[in-house]
Simulated assay, not measured.
Amino acid sequence: MRFHSRKWVKPEDLNPNQTLFGGKLLAWIDEEAALYSIIQLENERVVTKHMSEINFVSSAKQGDIIEIGIDVVKFGKSSITLKCEVRNIMTKETIITVNSITMVNLDSFGRPSIHGKTAIEFIKDRVKK
């Protein structure tokens, strides 16, 4: 699992139980999945099609720093399927797992579009020296 971004849990992120609101965490995951897919597929037009069962393992509280990890499960013709783990950066305790997030590559008319990708690419490998 590659952990790409970190979030600091602030008062506005909390639910009435004073723990991280699940909806806020899911929004962060959706954004991270979109950013990851846009970079991998080299297209700004990517949308979330499906998110599998979400498993809340533990909670986070105000002041915690969490990190969001994304890995590719598979490349489809017009999609990319990811998995996600969010954990507390200090304790490494898992907060949530999502086994499958399907993101779809779109053309300029908003229709699914073949992306031609078959493997993870790193930005550093795309830059010509």
Rank of each mutant, 00 (worst) to 15 (best):
M103N: 07
K128N: 10
G116K: 06
F109V: 03
V73F: 00
M90W: 11
V73E: 02
I89M: 14
I120S: 04
T97C: 08
S113L: 11
V72F: 06
P112Q: 08
L41V: 08
R6K: 11
I89Q: 13
I29H: 02
G23Y: 12
T81S: 09
K24W: 13
W8E: 06
A33Y: 02
I68Q: 03
S37W: 07
Q40S: 01
I38L: 00
S78Y: 02
K24F: 11
V127Q: 11
R111C: 12
V46Q: 00
E32H: 11
E53W: 01
R6D: 01
E93D: 15
R2W: 09
R45W: 03
Q40G: 01
S78T: 15
T48C: 00
V73A: 00
I66D: 03
I95E: 03
K128G: 01
H4P: 04
N43I: 04
K24G: 04
F56I: 15
E53M: 09
S52Q: 01
K61S: 12
D107Q: 14
P11G: 07
A60K: 07
I65H: 10
K83V: 04
G116D: 06
D64Q: 01
A34Y: 01
K128W: 08
S58Y: 11
E53P: 01
S5D: 10
P16A: 08
G69W: 09
M103W: 06
N15L: 06
L14I: 10
S5N: 13
I39Y: 00
I95D: 02
I101S: 03
V98C: 10
G110T: 10
E67S: 11
T97L: 09
E42Q: 14
E44P: 11
G76F: 05
G63H: 06
V47W: 00
E44W: 11
L41M: 10
I54S: 08
M51D: 00
K128D: 03
E93A: 14
F3P: 06
N55S: 15
V46E: 00
S100N: 13
I101P: 03
V46F: 04
L25I: 07
T81A: 04
A27D: 15
E31S: 13
F122M: 15
I95G: 02
S37P: 07
Q62T: 07
S113M: 14
M103Q: 11
I114Y: 09
I114L: 07
R2Y: 11
V86L: 07
